[in-house]
C-alpha cells in the first residue's frame, strides 16, 4: 500500500523510480494508470486530475503504459498488437519504420502470433506498442527484467531515441546501469513512500547516499 508518495515528473525528461522489491514502484505506476484505485491524495497530469478516472480515460488523456509482465496479446499477431497500441486502423508509417528499425525482430515477425515471440521480443513489442503513437507520458515498468544483455542494449537504444524526441518518461528500473544511462531524475521508494528524489547525477555519484537510501550500493548491480 502506498502511504506518502510525493513525486514530480518533469516534462521532457526521464525520471527513474528506484527502490527495493516491494517498495511500491509498480503500485505507483498502476495507481497513476488507474488500474488500482487511488484512496487518498491526488495525481495531476497536464492540468487534469487523474484520481477517479478509469484506465481507458487515462490512456486517452495521453499516457502510455508498459507493464512489468508486458501485457502482450499472445493470440494476436505483432501487427495486431501494434494496431491496438495505435488505436487506429492505419498506423503512421514513419513510426512503424522507426520502430522496425529500432526493433528488427518485430518487422521479421510482423504477421506472426505474438505468443510465439521470445521473452526479449515480447518486451520489444510491449515497448513498441506504446511508442507507435506519441504519448505525453510513458509509464514503463522494468523493461529490462530478466533479459539477455544483447536485448537490453536494443531496448536501451530505443529508449534513448524516445528520450531524444523529448518524451516524458517515468520508468521503474532495477538495473542501475540502465537507470543511470537513461535517467535525468531519480526517485527512491521504500515501504510505500518516496524517501528521496533529485537529479540522477547526484545519486549516481554518491555511493553513501545509495547505501543510506537502499541499504546497498546500486553500483553493485552494474
Amino acid at each position: 500500500m502506498l502511504q506518502g508518495v510525493d513525486l514530480d515528473v518533469p516534462a521532457g525528461e526521464v525520471t527513474m523510480l528506484l527502490g527495493r522489491n516491494g517498495a511500491g514502484k509498480t503500485t505507483t505506476l498502476r495507481t497513476i494508470m488507474g488500474l488500482w484505485k487511488l484512496r487518498q491524495g491526488r495525481i495531476g497530469f497536464a492540468g487534469q486530475e487523474l484520481g477517479g478516472m478509469g484506465p481507458s480515460a487515462i490512456a486517452r488523456a495521453g499516457i502510455g503504459y508498459v507493464p512489468e509482465e508486458m501485457g502482450i496479446f499472445g493470440d494476436l499477431t505483432v501487427a495486431e498488437n501494434m494496431r491496438l497500441g495505435a488505436r487506429t486502423r492505419r498506423m503512421r508509417q514513419d513510426r512503424i519504420d522507426w520502430l522496425t528499425a529500432a526493433f528488427p525482430a518485430l518487422g521479421t515477425f510482423w504477421h506472426r502470433p505474438a505468443g510465439t515471440l521470445s521473452g526479449g521480443q515480447k518486451q520489444m513489442l510491449s515497448l513498441a506498442r506504446v511508442m507507435v503513437e506519441p504519448r505525453q507520458l510513458y509509464l514503463i515498468d522494468e523493461p529490462t527484467k530478466g533479459l539477455a544483455p544483447a536485448v537490453v542494449s536494443v531496448l536501451v537504444g530505443a529508449l534513448r531515441q524516445l528520450k531524444s524526441e523529448g518524451a516524458t518518461i517515468l520508468m521503474v528500473e532495477q538495473n542501475f546501469a540502465v537507470a543511470k544511462a537513461l535517467g535525468q531524475n531519480a526517485a527512491v521508494m521504500d515501504d510505500g513512500r518516496t524517501v528521496w528524489s533529485g537529479r540522477m547525477a547526484e545519486l549516481a555519484g554518491d555511493a553513501g547516499l545509495q547505501d543510506r537510501l537502499m541499504g546497498l550500493h546500486l553500483e553493485g548491480h552494474r
Binding site: 488500474l35 481507458s56 507493464p67 501485457g71 493470440d75 491496438l84 497500441g85
Partner: peptide, 23 residues
C-alpha cells in the same frame, strides 16, 4: 477493430483498458 478489441479483451482485459479502450 471491434473484433480485434474483443479478441484482445478475452486474453487480457486490463491491458486493453490501459491502451485506451472502454472494455
Amino acid at each position: 477493430t471491434i473484433g480485434l478489441i474483443v479478441r484482445a479483451g478475452v486474453q487480457n482485459g486490463e491491458m486493453v483498458e490501459a491502451l485506451g479502450y472502454r472494455l
